[in-house]
Design a protein around this nucleic acid. Sequence first.
RNA 1: GCCGCCUUAGCUCAGCCGGCAGAGCGACGCACUCGUAAUGCGUAGGUCUGGGGUUCGAUUCCCCAAGGCGGCUCCA
Length: 668
Amino acid sequence: MSTMSITIAAGGASQQRVTDTATTGLDLFGDDRTIVAVRVNGELRDLNRTLPEGATVEPVTIDSPDGLDILRHSTAHVAAQAVQSLHEEAKLGIGPPIKDGFYYDFDVAAPFTPDDLREIEKAMTKIIKERQRFQRRAVSDEEAHAELAAEPYKLELIADKSSAAADEEASAEVGAGELTIYDNVRRDSSIAWKDLCRGPHLPHTGYIPAFALTRNSAAYWRGDQNNNQLQRLYGTAWPSREELKAYETRLAEAAKRDHRKLGAELDLYSFPDEIGSGLAVFHPKGGLLRKIMEDYSRQRHIEAGYDFVNTPHISKAELFNISGHLGFYSDLMYPPMHVDEERHADGSLKRQGQDYYLKPMNCPMHCLIFRSRGRSYRELPLRLFEFGSVYRYELSGVVHGLTRVRGMTQDDAHIYCTVDQMQDELISLLQFVLDLLTDYGLTDFYLELSTRDAEKSIGSDEDWERATDALRQAAAVSGLDLVLDPGGAAFYAPKISVQARDAIGRTWQMSTIQVDLMLPDRFDLEITAPDGSRQRPVMIHRALFGSVERFIGVLVEHYAGAFPPWLAPVQVIGIPVAAEHNAYLLSVADRLRAAGVRVEVDTSDDRMQKKIRNAERAKVPYILIAGGEDAAANAVSFRYRDRRQNNGVPIEAAIDEITSDIAARRQV
RNA sequence: GCCGCCUUAGCUCAGCCGGCAGAGCGACGCACUCGUAAUGCGUAGGUCUGGGGUUCGAUUCCCCAAGGCGGCUCCA
């Protein structure tokens, strides 16, 4: 028997081994169920493949990112086998691992029902119990064709791979090198199922410790609306039952933070059917929250040198023809209102009407303000700010709570400056944005730079490069991580967006900063330069909140409705032990109110326990309780949101504590 | 926009195979006056989302629309 030498690299140490030439990863690590694959000379491989001479072999554990992907990808195969065993006609799409799980697409006669999902889960459990081996097998294109003749979507992927123009999706599924098929082999050596796949996979299905099917939905083949719609089955898989349970708990926690649910519970806003989809109304508490946020934003914008403007909600079509929106985006605008048309008695036109549109953006109007008189270089940078209400006819299927609406208020500004000023302006702007978001309690950011899509963009290469460089430079100064989004820019401008992670680690796109390479030309904007010549200004679009509505939605989820005192609509609620203490608490409330605190006293005839429960459910930062003992001592008793108590606090000290938390924008 | 599911009182939800609509919470009233997560009793709330159809009869079955939910696509 011939031998070979390999290096095992595990846990930072490496170790030479002489083994026989038929050695597999399973031979090395097969007694450890947490090792699901090996990395051989940097490449992920199945445990049951023989190792090459001289290889450096690293074990891949099931809880590593690669290990989890392998687990989930293998679980997707199990799901597909289960589906085809129950639904013979099902044709396979693709089935990759995704964040926290996997999906698999199928062309089936009828969409899956909840009952189907339960049955598929049952069948999957059976397959897992059978401990079917995942057996890799290289095949020629012809062989793959023959074996998968009944799988039209797989054939399409094979064809794509054969043609040089393999797209990213196809190569992810079938691999860049040779084609491989994975057989699922039962212990009696019969083949249960097979799939065209690049792998790698678990050694056998028994390596799947915990899984669940989570939901199903429709998805277009290859994400293209013009293709067939397939049924997508979503699932999740974890290294242990406990981790699956923890994942389910996380989902439940996230659901508790849902801003649509909390918005109703906290009486902040609602979405009346009578008004229309995606159009929110803000109730008194939500309106107050909005005002607090807007007031603070306004104050900061004043300090940062912005000028405040106001513009109407509607405009004649002419404006959006100049800006180009009607040409490019009329699908996303509400249809026009046709007004002023008059006709003679015979129906012939007497007076031609006008089309008015709800504005989808504020920038065209801001450009008109810029253009309303001659502008000097001395005025630059000119920063025009507005809480501008815009309306976009979003597709009915995408409208979602406050985060995707049809009517919203942008904290929108347009900065006009010279090319030379652009760099400094972007740097200070990004800092301004980050500072302000931090004040609202978002502190964990990264940046995304969306660059030009050469296919769909206007403007010169030089302009794009200069603008993109300026954005990249501003990002570098911020010191934050920068993720590239190649080709993700709008056709007229590169963009930096600030992504914020919330309290439970989800990321939200918050602010955007765009350098516009189109509107200054379209509106023929000019400044008079020091030498008397006319120059085109640079225009920067930016929104910090994105929209006030969306930002409120994000903050509700971030804080789970428990706002820091400075943002809380009701900061303090007074609860008397009995009605006879109402007057005392009302007088304490008066003093708090005089100190600028938003305070209410619950004088209803509920019992105090009930009032405490109500106040807790309203997530009021401070509950102040007072009875005979407190009144006698000129004191109040605190109950905080975490149920901590602090009894007998003198009124002065209570006011100090509350007002200082508010002033510091501290969370409590 | 596409696919699937859903819509019963202000909210959360029961309601079997088609036969006169139910609970809890909330609201309102009365009693209770109480020291840290629901006091008791009572009252009022419904064209069962809207429209059409089938049927002796529709909250229930069918069709259409609106709104919602989960995805897909989209997000200037």
